[in-house]
Design a protein around this nucleic acid. Structure first.
Length: 429
RNA sequence: GCGGUUGUGGCGAAGUGGUUAACGCACCGGAUUGUGGUUCCGGCAUACGUGGGUUCGAUCCCCAUCAACCGCCCCA
């Protein structure tokens, strides 16, 4: 097993040229979109004190119980690679007193790797990249709708069609407590018939029982109390207003009373965006989020409502693939030098420097390739122009510029090369 | 954490208990002088995931391990 360390750790991957261009494209789109919605970027550390996640995400969650990358540093501190973004953003919000800014709500977006110790499979990595937004400081249903609209736009802007927006309301504390008690009362008589997972879920988070796939067909499921019937007036009204905004914006959605999110901090609006695309695999959730009033206080900040969502860039790219969407990535090269002889090759080096300073993309051969092979390389690299330079040209102080698309070749004085190429590139496009 | 499938050169992919492990792609060179494609010819590569075991001998059989893929759980 020598050399095991020469493989990327399980659940991690290298993104290589050919793929990174797609990532860059998507990242730029998402940032651009965030700008339209007026969310500003925040960058927080990739690791935090372990306790932040224990308190923020919730001790009972799978994430905290079994998925965290936790380590002790040399100062004997327990630190954890962030498994999600919200806890860190809220911590930064409190620590930097962003609540004191005159611009409220505080609308932030982030972008970066997250870490969860899980068994890798399609759409699930141990290190994956999330893009997410958080709006802190407003309890206006309109901002829930804004966040939902932004989330959907992340996919629609890229041309995705097979999307399903699923929403639910988990209600406020009072509604949740009432519902929770109702659930326990409802399932308690059937406890022995439920799967072992559900038996423990019934204690910890009875809401999860509704989501169980094994017990899906149990008769008690049909008659189980719905959270929507336990929303108090305030919660109900809030949910109605969110839906009204969505209706007015023309955003399609379905309400699923069984939608339960995995993190403890959610209340009121909860949602997921799924992909309908064929062959997308078992994991269909592209992104998820919801409202988390109370989380800021839980993390020692002032009473501040909040809502946010996060999406996985890996899954976004999978969805694009599943729908056969090609991103408009220009992989061409402006110019490539084909030189003959040592003198010409040297001259090419300094000419390339000039071209690059003028903002032109240019490359040459460094493998000692034969002339013909240099042309092959230029073709392969999708060079728009090949600049031919040999002793003949050198002696005349010129260069031959060949436009690859048409095959036409023109002589250009060396001191005119930069401006010639600039004109060509402008005219050509 | 559990289950299934898989692991041969840069990629794809045959194959056998026993001399130099096919082939395709890619790459490099050539087909008379300095021009992209096709064709033809030639060349190339520390390849049987790793560690043990069975055997006179294993890439092929067994065990373990690692990894990948798929699924469960859960999520993004």
């Amino acid at each position: 097993m020598e050399g095991y360390y020469m493989k990327a750790p399980r659940g991690t991957q290298d993104l290589l040229p050919g793929t990174t261009e797609k990532w860059q494209y998507v990242e730029e789109k998402l940032v651009e979109l965030s700008r339209k919605y007026h969310y500003k970027e925040i960058r927080t550390p990739i690791f935090e004190h372990t306790e932040l996640f224990q308190r923020g995400v919730g001790d009972s969650t799978d994430i905290v119980q079994k998925e965290m990358y936790t380590f002790t540093d040399r100062g004997d501190r327990s630190l954890t690679l962030r498994p999600e973004g919200t806890a860190s953003v809220v911590r930064a919000f409190v620590q930097n007193k962003l609540f004191g800014s005159p611009n409220q709500p505080t609308k932030l977006f982030y972008f970066g790797p997250m870490f969860r110790y899980e068994r890798p499979q399609q759409g699930r990595m141990r290190q994956f990249v999330q893009f997410g937004v958080e709006a802190l400081g407003s309890a206006d249903p309109a901002i829930d709708a804004e966040v939902l609209a932004l989330a959907m736009s992340c996919y629609q802007e890229l041309g995705l069609k097979s999307l399903k927006l699923v929403i639910n309301s988990l209600g406020d504390m009072e509604s949740r407590t009432n519902h929770r008690n109702a659930l326990i009362n409802h399932f308690e008589p059937h406890k022995e018939e439920l799967c072992s997972d559900c038996q423990t879920r019934l204690q910890q988070n009875p809401l999860r029982v509704l989501d169980c796939k094994k017990d899906r067909n149990h008769p008690a499921m049909e008659t189980a109390p719905s959270i929507l019937d336990y929303l108090n007036d305030e919660s109900k009204q809030y949910f109605e207003q969110v839906k009204q905004h969505l209706d007015h914006m023309g955003i399609d959605y379905v309400v699923d009373a069984n939608l339960v999110r995995g993190l403890d901090y959610y209340n009121h609006t909860a949602f997921e965006i799924m992909s309908d695309a064929d062959g997308f695999g078992a994991i269909t959730t592209l992104s998820g989020g919801g409202r988390y009033n109370g989380l800021v206080e839980e993390l020692d900040g002032p009473e501040t409502p909040g809502i946010g969502f996060a999406l996985s860039v890996e899954r976004l790219l999978m969805a694009l693939e599943a729908e056969g969407i090609e991103l408009p990535i220009d992989d061409s090269l402006d110019c490539y030098f084909a030189s003959l002889g040592e003198r010409a090759s040297q001259e090419a080096v300094s000419l390339m420097f000039q071209l690059r300073q003028a903002g032109i993309q240019v490359d040459k051969d460094y493998q000692g390739k034969k002339f013909k092979a240099q042309f092959k390389a230029a073709d392969r690299l999708q060079a728009k122009y090949v600049i031919v330079l040999g002793d003949e040209e050198l002696d005349q102080g010129i260069v031959n510029v060949k436009k690859m698309e048409t095959g036409e070749q023109t002589e250009v004085a060396i001191d005119q090369l930069v401006s010639h190429i600039q004109n060509e590139l402008q005219g050509g496009n």
